[in-house]
Design a protein around this nucleic acid. Structure first.
Lengths: 243, 243
DNA sequence: GAGTGGTCTAGACCACGAG
DNA sequence: TCGTGGTCTAGACCACTCA
């Protein structure tokens, strides 16, 4: 843990971090412009921008092109609850979130066939979810369901993810694959996050008792505000159960 | 998905990406120096470096200070198996990995007390794991166990994570919290990854039947080669009605 | 010591956002 | 239109690696 000399940009980032946490710059407030800050710290704009890039990566500062750099509001924590309980999955989000859904009918492309284990070009229903808090995007979800399992209504209610379990055979197994990566450019703009802010990517595949894939979900959660939690209760039947 | 004009650095990154995937630059090979590439693409070194930064973030290129930029070998995939089966957790790693462990005795600091639910300054055993493939670091793990549950031997065998379950009361519940973030500077240097490559951070807490925390593990896995998989089998006899 | 990447400068011009 | 951030230049000097 050796930090013998601090590079300029780290020193500046540290100073801004402290000023933010000390309240000299308040949440939602605009920082001085990059050129002003560059003058203040007596560095070039390029150096100052690389310092701000560090704070962006930490999710402390949000850049808006043409407007300025803003201190982010304290983040409302999102917790994704794993383990295949669809009702609980989203209720863990802190309450006043808006959710929008857009439903389209598609034919299975190659990555769908491997994910859902369906023939190529078979009929799928795709639902694109976005959750918002105060008009700010919070998370993204692509959900794919075989067409015969999804209601035929062209516009599904927003509660599709919750209502679906009632319409199909009971789920038997849920597999969730979690990875960390940087967002694609599309995801970064949709979620309004920095391209250097890591996202949590969850690929969830749900199987019914016959082993058929009844739903595949691709979720993208910004890493600065989202965790995924998986709780496993282990069968203790091998040992003598307690009274 | 609008990409009307490609910025220079994106165009250069795309070109290098294609050259790498086409085999013009082979795995493990050194790229031309940054100044040579800058001349070749007729851009300044700063612009060229920002192009390389994109490839680093994708894990395609590894920079080594003083040596050059290297095409990464195709990555051996690491899969972290969740769900609290400690034996399976690490056997899922592809075979020929070396694992080193360093054991120390510490007193619980504030973040340990909340994690392990133990009194401040209580005795803990800390194990620092690193896994290697060909001398290259692969993953990091900090494991904390209450001292009275860990064998008193000052130097534990490497198999501590596997052997521990046999020595203590059977596990009852495992909670795993997964998040995505950029690595700390320390993690980046230890894992020899770019500071802009996202890591998967897993905090695993294991409880025994009495609810006592018998182990807390903090795992750090590079996002370009590691996934975490959680498989849940749902009890089909129980159709939980929704509130 | 030669060559590499790491940091930084002092500008320039372009693209976006709001009034 | 004007101020903002986005991109880029053509250098400079420092730190690291390796022969």
């Amino acid at each position: 843990m050796i930090r013998p000399v601090l590079s300029r940009r780290h020193a500046i980032a540290d100073d801004l971090r402290h000023q933010i946490s000390a309240g000299h710059f308040k949440a939602g407030e605009r920082l001085p412009s990059e050129s002003q800050l560059a003058v203040h710290y007596a560095v070039s704009t390029a150096t100052l921008r690389s310092a701000l890039a560090l704070l962006q990566g930490e999710g402390l500062v949000e850049k808006i092109h043409g407007s300025g750099n803003f201190v982010r509001r304290p983040l409302r924590k999102i917790t994704y609850i794993g383990g295949g309980c669809p009702a609980a999955t989203w209720t863990a989000f802190s309450a006043p979130l808006r959710m929008t859904a857009r439903t389209t009918s598609i034919e299975a492309a190659s990555h769908h066939t491997t994910l859902l284990n369906v023939p190529p070009r078979s009929a799928l229903t795709e639902v694109l979810f976005t959750t918002h808090e105060d008009k700010k995007p919070h998370s993204l979800a692509h959900i794919y369901v075989p067409r015969d399992l999804a209601p035929a209504t062209p516009r599904l209610p927003e509660r599709i993810a919750v209502s679906l379990p009632d319409l199909r055979p009971p789920l038997c197994e849920v597999q969730e694959r979690v990875s960390a990566r940087l967002p694609t450019q599309e995801e970064a703009t949709t979620l309004r996050i920095s391209p250097s802010l890591a996202v949590l990517s969850v690929t969830r595949v749900s199987l019914d008792a016959s082993g058929r894939v009844v739903e595949a979900a691709l979720l993208v959660l910004p890493g600065d505000r989202a965790d995924a939690v998986f709780t496993t209760r282990l069968a203790t039947e091998e040992r003598t159960p307690k009274p």
